[in-house]
Design a protein around this nucleic acid. Structure first.
Lengths: 334, 334
DNA sequence: CTGAAAGCGCTTACAG
DNA sequence: CTGAAAGCGCTTACAG
């Protein structure tokens, strides 16, 4: 009879069929609720007959909390973030959380997306490669909602935690490696000007080189995109009389574009005629066509920290930045 | 005063501050609701002061519909699906919908995930590269919730629509192209045995070859993964005396693994000593390192159809399978 | 252990 | 145009 009504049956329908109160139905579907085994079975049977399913929207309204985590991601095109999303959704899944995914432009400031996510009463916010105003970030903290910036830090952002790779050590390690392998004219290919990750990598790289007496000689900006990286590589390699002998790219995707541009446009073999290094250690970096030297950002560890930060979040905690150590992975391009 | 209470202010708080009824507050936040401009401004001001934001959970409970689309995806590792997700979220965003993302194993049957999504009262379901029992699929239809299988069809699934690439034409086009370029010993690398896409591509490929008098001579299964494809390529190319001169791989990711295996393990140059073709036309296929011949699946068009299917969904519609035409893209590997 | 009742924060007829 | 009231489908004290 409820069958031909639009939508799903409610706890009331089940209660009527099982001859119990609606509260009992609710308890039957609540782990650890005080209800006799006999009643529960009877209710579950009735529920099965009707195809009843508790309405989670109603539940989170009454409980005033949800197990939905809001996630804003700039682009899934970079396999690093695609894999981060994959691991994040799998890990959150295991702790009973779901992801409400909002779209943003790469590197955008996502106040409006976060605003909407807050309207959905999400339990926490994870931001991948995008920015948030500190006004909104503070508002989240005040409202008791943890905000985690993944792979980004924001100076002066109040309350938002960050989980990042070790940009400092990475930048230094690449610099030291270039120097040890005899490179002297060194270049850096940046992501965005406003990207904390790109900036930190460049600072550490440049500082190490300066101290070693072989200061950074060139730089170009690849905008963290393949097209941008190709253009930047042309810029860097264009003049045969003034070429860097090593390029550190702010991420692997750009480094791979640089490898191909050097190889196919300039006839320069990476590793011999020009050294190229990246950052992230995405799966593609290990493919034999590229065999890219890089500094790793261990996604699983970063995801674990992100999830733990959500689980153990405390409104009075100070803003924290968790730096997940990576390691230099030397392959054939250096 | 409401400031130090945990959580966000409610419409009641705003009403009190603005000296109006709670209904008025609701109207002030509803497009096209009958409310005077003056009142609306007053309410919006009060709301701004308190940092009020309508609770979308409550709204969708009363309206009994939400603008959330449930999405289940097997793995984001394949750039084809990563990009589909990216386009899907951008496009749904423009029609005011958000994505609730659930994780699944690749090619899994996702009844439990769909079950949960239904509990969230999602407006529609999109399934990427996973399967659903027809029991649940029927249940969705009965409840008025559209189900769209992206890049997959299910025989006998009642009510679920499908949006797929043109596996038939693709399989035939690759076969014709192999034959035209003089290849005679042809092999197929399958995805999964249960994958409708892999099966359809193989059937069309094999049928064309059979008619042309050069029947399929070998096959291997790469499980739609890189590792699987490498193993399958070894299997196919292992015996120097009995090698296929062309391999059609059920997707680009496997084809790229095949290229690298042929090139770096067997010293066989794709395009000359062995022809390799893929399916999808992911961005990587066009990279100069691979320059892969493939049959395209136009993601944007597939996404548009998916979204339109949701928008124009009618409970009485028959199950539809929308085949989005692609085209043969000849590059250097054939 | 069980039920009646209040309440979560909204929307939406219904009066005025 | 505005407000009082019912209701969306649950959970959770409160009695018994």
């Amino acid at each position: 009879m409820t069958d031909d009504k639009k939508g799903f049956p409610t706890a009331h329908d089940v209660a009527r069929l099982a001859g119990v109160s609606q509260s009992a139905v609710s308890r039957a579907f609540t782990a650890g609720a005080s209800i006799s085994a006999k009643l529960r079975t009877r209710i579950l049977t009735a529920a099965g007959e009707l195809g009843y399913r508790p309405n989670l929207i109603a539940r989170s309204l009454t409980q005033r909390r949800s197990n939905v985590v809001g996630l804003v991601m700039g682009n899934v095109d970079n396999p690093f973030f695609a894999q981060a999303l994959d691991r994040l959704s799998a890990t959150l899944d295991m702790m009973g959380c779901r992801i409400l995914l909002l779209h943003a432009e790469p590197n955008a400031q996502v106040d409006s997306q976060v605003d909407e996510l807050l309207s959905y009463q999400v339990r926490a916010l994870v931001l991948l490669a995008v920015n948030l105003s500190s006004k909104l970030s503070e508002e989240c903290t005040r409202a008791g909602i943890p905000v985690i910036l993944f792979n980004r830090t924001v100076a002066g952002s109040v309350g938002a935690h960050s989980v990042v790779g070790d940009n400092q050590s990475g930048g230094r390690a690449i610099a030291a490696h270039f120097l040890e392998t005899g490179r002297r004219k060194l270049a850096f290919m940046a992501g965005y000007a406003e990207s904390s990750t790109s900036n930190e990598r460049e600072m550490a790289f440049g500082a190490y080189l300066a101290v070693a007496g072989a200061p950074l000689s060139r730089r170009a900006t690849g905008h963290y995109s393949r097209m941008g990286a190709i253009a930047a590589t042309r810029d860097l390699l264009g003049d045969p009389h003034d070429r860097p002998d090593a390029i550190f790219c702010a991420n692997d995707l750009m480094a791979i574009a640089a490898i191909e541009t050097a190889r196919f446009e300039f006839g320069l073999e990476p590793g011999r005629e020009v050294a190229i290094a990246g950052f992230d250690d995405i799966a593609i970096a290990a493919w034999p066509s590229f065999s890219l030297t890089t500094y790793s950002q261990p996604i699983d560890a970063m995801v674990d920290h992100t999830v733990r930060l959500i689980e153990e979040w405390n409104p009075d905690d100070d803003q924290r930045t968790i730096v997940v150590p990576g390691s230099l992975i030397v392959r054939s391009t250096t």
